[in-house]
Simulated scan of single mutants.
Amino acid sequence: MNCKKIWHEKLYCHFGQHFLIDELLYKKKTNYQEIMIFKNSFFGNIMVIDDVVQTTEKDEFIYHEMLTHIPVFSHGLIKNVLIIGGGDGGILREVCRHKTIENITMVEIDHEIIDICKKFFPNHSKNSYKDSRLKLIIDDGLNFTNKTKEKFDLIISDSTDPIKYGKNLFSSKFYLNCKNCLDKNGIFVAQNGVFFLQKKETFLTLKNLKKHFHDTSFYHATIPTYYGGIMMFAWGTNNIEYRKNTLKNLQSRIKNAKLAFNYYNAKIHISSFYLPEYIINELDKN
């Protein structure tokens, strides 16, 4: 399916980014979402869901490393992990790199997205779906967290934006469910969009998180694919000590894990919780 045309993202009504489609690789509407995958000469394969860019081959490592390793190394003793969403396999890949993690549960609403990404984004998952620690469940994240009796040290919500089925994963009910699924010192993290263009979503997340966690915050990373500034990640836990980790302590944990990264490191870890002044001012006002 060869073509040369411009694709425009439709996340924002006033403006947005565009990509040149060098080759259309896949397009289908599943029971839950419309998926399109195309090749771009700079970003490689790009996946779009409901007209919003989800991931690219070029810079996915930034997103997946930051959403995974910030909470893992903050905690220091993660054994049981729950991943909500993340059907492209990137978060699963990064979680599986930690050999001290004993159990990984992944809940994805759309099984087709997993099969599609194994084909078109094999380096996202890197065969992590074959990891013996993984229990894969096809279900809605809100429904699963509402009924499960399991407890986790870490919950990572790797969802789409809060539209359609993604809305459930930004609700106060979902955050309450996650708190109830966490062990006493567990951590919840989630992608939370680009603040400069999605302020309302950030305000709503903070309001809802504060209802259920003693320590709520955001950390950030700069990811070229996500247009409009820095990408925000939501943070919720009842242990106020995790964000007080020293540089020396984090460096020791990273060294003991014997892992190498393309973006994440101990200094990035600490600095990611320091937000720009315009964000601090907006959050204080709201």
Rank of each mutant, 00 (worst) to 15 (best):
I116E: 13
H98R: 08
K285F: 10
Y129F: 15
K4R: 12
H214E: 12
F233D: 02
L82G: 09
L67E: 11
D50K: 03
T68E: 04
Q251T: 01
C3A: 14
S128A: 13
K211Y: 01
Q191H: 14
T68V: 06
E23P: 00
G44N: 03
T56Y: 00
L136P: 03
F188W: 09
G87V: 11
N40F: 08
N45R: 06
T225L: 12
G16V: 08
T56P: 02
P276T: 09
G44K: 00
I104D: 08
F73S: 08
P224C: 02
F42T: 05
Q251C: 01
K79W: 04
L204G: 00
E60K: 01
I37S: 13
C13Y: 14
H212T: 09
F170I: 02
N80E: 15
D183V: 14
I62C: 03
F218E: 08
D284C: 10
S271G: 02
I240Q: 12
D139H: 14
K255H: 11
M66I: 03
H124Y: 10
N256S: 09
T237H: 08
T225P: 11
F73G: 08
N80H: 14
L20E: 13
I78A: 11
L250F: 06
S74P: 00
H269D: 01
N177C: 11
N192G: 15
S171K: 05
N45V: 01
S159I: 07
T237N: 08
M36R: 08
I240W: 00
A221N: 02
I101L: 02
